[in-house]
Design a protein around this nucleic acid. Sequence first.
DNA 1: GCTAAATGGAACGGTTGCGTAACGAACGTG
DNA 2: CACGTTCGTTACGCAACCGTTCCATTTAGC
Lengths: 115, 115
Amino acid sequence: MSVDLRAEEALKLWQAVSMGLVHDDKPDLTLRQMTILLTVYLEPPPHTVRGLAARLHVTKPVITRALDTMGRMRLIKRRRDEADRRNVVIQRTLEGSLFLEHVGDLIRLKARELI
Amino acid sequence: MSVDLRAEEALKLWQAVSMGLVHDDKPDLTLRQMTILLTVYLEPPPHTVRGLAARLHVTKPVITRALDTMGRMRLIKRRRDEADRRNVVIQRTLEGSLFLEHVGDLIRLKARELI
DNA sequence: GCTAAATGGAACGGTTGCGTAACGAACGTG
DNA sequence: CACGTTCGTTACGCAACCGTTCCATTTAGC
């Protein structure tokens, strides 16, 4: 990977990708939802409500609600941790993987176009 | 500028920047608001409600409401077009420039860290 | 066992965004 | 100088998100 972004190019990339996401007819994720989703998919598991809340510096209900919404969208799913039944483990789904694959492709496409 | 993003690195960049924006105590912009803001600052003026709505493939009230909110945040301002007083021209502000400068710096920082 | 701590979720009231539909102001054209 | 068109905004009902607070369940420590 080689990255040498200059200020305006960095913003142009962000704009192009954001525009692409807005153009999709899929419902937009909020910034927090997107951050949670990416964290679950990119950082090593296990992911818990408490852990995500700490990672994002937000309160637990924020995570719970985001998981409710993204669960309805099938982007993630919850499972009780059988070892410690107080915990809920957040897991990836096929739909979530496909969605983020799409986002990744969009970023790469727009980055290439900006060269 | 040289960009050669691979799939996971592209997503990691998006995650790191999103996380940085969430960590800021400033109120999060929605994806649509951010897209409007970047478009106003990066694409050649003049910018009108109708033009932005067409550019983003959203309805006019979406733009009006986003401008209301970002106007309250001082990120953009509106001005009547004196040539054709039906039009409203959307203009940049100092605060908006500073905010996007901050976002640009964040993107560049995270991109550098990912090399 | 019994109490204290930890976890995720529910409830509440308030704010903001959404899509649809309607509106007033300004323009252009006959 | 009417009349339709264009522009941005407002109104409405609805859904989602927010922060705070409280709660049920589960675990851990004494």
